[in-house]
Design a protein around this nucleic acid. Structure first.
Length: 505
RNA sequence: GCGCCCAUCGUCCAGCCCGGUCCAGGACGUCAGCCUUUCAAGCUGAAAACACGGGUUCGAAUCCCGUUGGGCGUACCA
């Protein structure tokens, strides 16, 4: 391999939401670019006007930016090799198609969709491998001229030699060989004048100076076509690396139906970009020191293309959540609080029906993320940081801080273990009195008061705290009780106790 | 069907290229215990894998062949 700095790229197509697989491939491309002091290009492959989604492109930019996957060149950042949208490069493809035609490496094909369909049906019936039969390959120049003159719609196909074989070297898999007779005469230029992926990707990679193609495994079978194209043009082919495909739990290629695949989804679920990126870096890659948690820079520092594995990793959401939790816990309280606020604010811009039942969201929807809100989030994050794995989980664990009045909870949750409702009510009344008598409202003091009360009444501290917890937070699971009461304040705490007392009969 | 790729705990990864130090190591998850005001977090421990069959070799998770299994491709989609 040459020592010149690598030029790599990703080439997503703007169809639907930005895909987690795009980020996965982008991550390793960026690694190679940074490691080798090269360039990373983003190119939009929008040559399929039937699947084109106008909103998709902006979402791709947004998602990559969110993840910190910075590209040196791209549609929105410019660069010396633009334009970076294939739909804006059609003259180039036409010109290159003419070159191929002139060299005899491609030919015009006038076959109709119907004939092609029929051909495929016949091949299926005869259990033959499907593929174009080369009908138009043998048209005479005169016949071709006549049809073109007559305006017969046509495509341009590549003229694949039917003898011999084509081999390319894959970084991870070694030499891969295909018999030429198994390679179809691929369409290069569609009848609408747009190129197919095969033509566009080769032409653009060459034009943009791409030296190293790192893409998903699903492209392996079309690589020989690309190699043949480079050869026909007389261009030097890039280095090839085919990454394994991310998988669903059943090991099929990761898909929307069986797994969340939208990067937007991960962001809106409250995953940290650091966490998702780190997790993606764990897929198919083994850190030399066996580290699980690492930053992008740490990944680059130790990165070695040879350490990539070839087996398709199953995308395990549970492990992602764990890793994300690790990242959340490694943030400072200020940072975490700011991220929670930003997350809630973003969600508030497009609230879902369920958000109306979410006290944190309701608060922001009503008053905006004002100073009081920010302050409350900041005060509560130290209590919940060890209890959340995503930013989104903040809303459920910290709900008790945002309710004006607690939603109804089962009265039996109020009853202490092995005690009757009446006994619990009496104890709770004494808790209320003890709290009310506290000279200052600080967690340590409140705890001391209740522990003294437990001692005096012969209750086990834990047994006494249970009904208090339920009364104060409305749930059997909550952040640490005394810190919670401190933040809630005397009035709110006592009011909640007062509301609970009658429910014990 | 055909072509190509792949094959270590349920899952992610280490070991494989340069056979012995591997009765296979780490992590997630699971289970148990500790800690403890709940839940978490943390700590300790446990169960859990070299797909199968041949071969090469004194010796194979590691090399070779085959089988099986899985995946991808087989479009005027990328």
């Amino acid at each position: 391999m040459s020592a010149r700095p690598p030029v790599v790229r990703i080439a997503p197509s703007p169809t639907g939401d930005p895909h987690v697989g795009t980020a996965y491939i982008a991550l390793f491309n960026l690694c190679v670019a940074r490691k080798g002091g090269g360039r990373f290009i983003l190119r939009i492959e929008d040559t399929d006007r039937t699947r084109y989604d106008a909103s998709s492109e902006a979402k791709i930019f947004e998602a990559l930016r969110w993840l910190g996957l910075r590209y040196d060149e791209g549609p929105d950042v410019g660069g010396p090799n633009g334009p970076y949208r294939q739909s804006e490069r059609t003259p180039l493809y036409r010109e290159m198609t003419e070159t191929l035609l002139a060299k005899g490496a491609a030919y015009r094909c006038f076959c109709t969709e119907e004939r092609l369909e029929e051909l495929r049906a016949t091949q299926r019936a005869m259990k033959l491998p499907p593929g174009y039969d080369g009908f138009c390959r043998h048209l005479t120049p005169d016949e071709v001229r006549a049809k073109v003159a007559a305006g017969v719609p046509h495509v341009v196909r590549m003229s694949v030699p039917k003898e011999g074989s084509t081999t390319f070297h894959d970084d991870l898999r070694g030499d891969v060989t295909f018999e030429n007779k198994t390679i179809d005469d691929q369409v290069l230029l569609k009848s609408d004048g747009f190129p197919t992926y095969h033509l566009a990707n080769v032409v653009d990679d060459h034009a943009m100076g791409v030296t190293w193609v790192i893409r998903a495994e699903e492209w392996i079978t079309s690589t020989p076509k690309h190699v043949l194209l480079y050869r026909a043009f007389g261009w030097e082919a890039p280095r090839w690396t085919h990454m394994p495909l991310l998988r669903n739990a059943d090991r099929s290629k990761i898909s929307k139906r069986k797994n969340p695949t939208s990067l937007i989804w991960y962001r809106d679920q409250g995953f940290l970009p650091e966490g998702l990126l780190n997790f993606l870096g764990l897929m198919g890659y083994g850190h030399p020191e066996g580290k699980e948690k690492f930053t992008f820079d740490e990944l680059v520092a130790t990165f070695d293309i040879g350490r990539l594995s070839t087996t398709g990793p199953v995308f395990d959401l549970e492990k992602l959540k764990w890793l994300n939790g690790e990242w959340i816990r490694s943030l400072t309280d200020d940072d975490l609080a700011a991220r929670v606020v930003a997350h809630v604010e973003r969600r508030a811009q497009a609230p879902t029906p369920e958000d109306a039942a979410n006290p944190v969201m309701r608060r922001v929807l009503a008053t905006g993320a004002d100073d009081a809100f920010r302050a409350l989030v900041r005060r509560t994050t130290p209590l919940v940081r060890e209890r959340i794995r995503t930013l989104e989980e903040y809303a459920s664990i910290a709900a008790c801080f945002f309710h004006d009045t607690l939603p109804t909870y089962p009265a039996e949750d109020l009853v202490a273990k092995k005690r009757t409702p009446a006994e619990t009510r009496d104890a709770l009344a004494r808790v209320r009195a003890a709290l009310d008598a506290a000279p200052s409202w600080r967690a340590a003091e409140l705890e001391a008061a209740l522990r003294a009360l437990a001692e005096a009444t012969g209750w086990k501290p834990g047994d006494l705290f249970t009904p208090v917890r339920t009364a104060v937070t409305g749930a059997k699971v909550s952040p640490p009780l005394f810190e919670t009461m401190e933040i809630l304040g005397r009035a709110t705490t006592l009011a909640r106790l007062d509301a609970a007392l009658p429910r014990l009969g």
